[in-house]
Design a protein around this nucleic acid. Sequence first.
DNA 1: GTGATGACAACCC
DNA 2: AGGGTTGCCATCA
Length: 111
Amino acid sequence: MDPRQQAILTLLALVPPGRVVSYGQLADLAGLPGRARLVGRVLRTQDTSGLPWHRVVAASGRISLPRGSDGWCEQRQRLLQEGVLLKGDRVSMKEHQWRPDLAAILMLMEQ
DNA sequence: GTGATGACAACCC
DNA sequence: AGGGTTGCCATCA
């Protein structure tokens, strides 16, 4: 698989329950600034079973899947299930956005 | 090769 | 709070 996609998926696995990341943030952490859309494409095309794909939302806090679609409902469900409150289809980024701690950053440095 | 599309985002009204 | 514009670029028709 493309190493960039691999990096994105590896980082995604580090996002803790109860927290979310934006597509752009994930791209940045993966060393791919400005490639938010790549993250979206990876999530759509790659096998994300076993990964916390539901913790990825738009920078605005919105779920990027079509409103009412199966994926939208599932993501919403999964987030609520782990304690992430949603106002409609939007989560409060101020409260729930993942800010990598020191330990996580050290792990990222070892790539 | 060309144009459209898209699980995005930053800006500017 | 919305809507339009532009940047991004892999895929696909």
